[in-house]
Design a protein around this nucleic acid. Structure first.
Length: 328
DNA sequence: AAGCACATCAACCGCAGCCGC
DNA sequence: AGCGGCTGCGGTTGATGTGCT
């Protein structure tokens, strides 16, 4: 096997990250950004390869990470998106604010295992449902009851079925109706339900100097941190992160950071869809942000309750302990 | 209490694609 | 055009946690 090409240097540490390493990485990123990941380990004083640093940051340390159990709504979204795009975890993650592709992938794999194990019991003749909310999920039928998800496949496993209909790729909300759950949220936040998912999804899911459309991003975003100040008086980090108790001095600088993608993004994907709808959404988002006094770009804190946020890991203890498994 | 099986999740690996030279 | 460096992605592994017997 051997190490990755970027890790050929002497004594590159592997395995779980220690709290000290995390602190070094956070401290470096918050003060310098990460123009070139290959330079990060050296400059941050880490015996890690750049790839490992990037992974650690993206999957664990970045401030907008959302941890804890997936809510039923997130599960629905994952299922819907997976039925459309297949195992494109990064794409799916781009629609789930604060969730990482790794997390979704892990979730799906473990979930699929359960499905496979339970498969004989889950097959029901409900695939003829006329419920319009399910009509675009062509080969599967999803039942939701007591947070138990049931997928009934028509002779094909979701995990192996190829993506369908690229034109529906970015319209997950056309596949099911989130309104019963989200109405309250929309009312509360003066935002339409669709926006609630759509906008933050494109806002948060990639690190500051990155974007979802990796095919064209490198030259545009590397070697600089796109920074815009948010007139924020409160922390921009999910409380569920527990960062308030972990590294308060280190995250101070980050509160006012938001990528140009977060401001401009409209899920411009490599498939190149969006344009007018995107621009409209951007404008709506800007207006909404202004109307909200820009207190926060992370909606999830606000919607935590209605969306089943009680299922999220309790802020401090759980998150902290899981943040540093090596310290346990 | 001990041992085992299973579940979860952080991290690694290899590859693809892009860019600059 | 070819090469090397870099990033991002998806598949996979391995350590740890948890529940059951």
């Amino acid at each position: 096997m051997g190490h990755h090409s970027c890790c050929n240097q002497q004594k590159v540490k592997r395995g779980l990250w220690s709290p000290e390493e995390d602190e070094k990485l956070i401290r470096y990123i918050t003060t310098h950004g990460y123009g070139c990941w290959s330079e990060v380990p050296e400059k941050a004083g880490l015996q890690r390869c750049g790839k490992s640093c990037r992974l650690r940051w993206i999957n664990y340390l970045r401030p907008d990470i959302r941890r804890g159990r997936f809510t039923p709504e997130e599960e629905k979204l994952i299922i819907s998106l997976h039925s459309v795009v297949g195992n494109r975890w990064a794409h799916i993650a781009s629609h789930l604010p604060g969730r990482t592709d790794n997390e979704i992938k892990n979730y799906w794999n473990s979930w699929i295992k359960k499905k496979i194990n339970r498969k004989p019991a889950t097959v029901t003749p409900t695939s003829t449902s006329t419920n319009p909310s399910n009509t675009t999920i062509e080969h599967s039928q999803i039942n939701y009851a007591s947070n138990q998800l049931e997928i009934v496949n028509n002779n094909q496993d979701l995990s192996t079925r190829p993506p369908v209909h690229q034109e529906t790729l970015f319209s997950p909300f056309f596949m099911f109706d989130p309104s019963p759950v989200l109405d309250g949220i929309a009312d509360h936040n003066n935002v339409r339900a669709g926006e609630l998912f759509h906008e933050p999804a494109s806002l948060n899911t990639e690190p500051w100097s990155s974007s979802n459309h990796h095919h064209h991003q490198h030259a545009h975003h590397h070697h600089q941190i796109q920074v815009q100040a948010i007139p924020s008086s409160t922390t921009a980090f999910p409380t569920s992160m527990g960062t308030n108790t972990y590294l308060p001095p280190l995250i101070e600088n980050m509160e006012n950071l938001v990528s140009i993608d977060q401001v401009q993004s409209c899920s411009i994907d490599d498939e190149g869809e969006m344009a007018l709808e995107c621009l409209q959404r951007q404008q709506e988002l800007n207006e909404w942000v202004e109307s909200q006094n820009c207190s926060n770009f992370l909606f999830w804190d606000n919607v935590e309750g209605p969306l089943g946020g009680e299922e999220l890991a309790p802020a401090s203890s759980n998150t902290l302990s899981s943040s540093f498994p090596s310290s346990l």
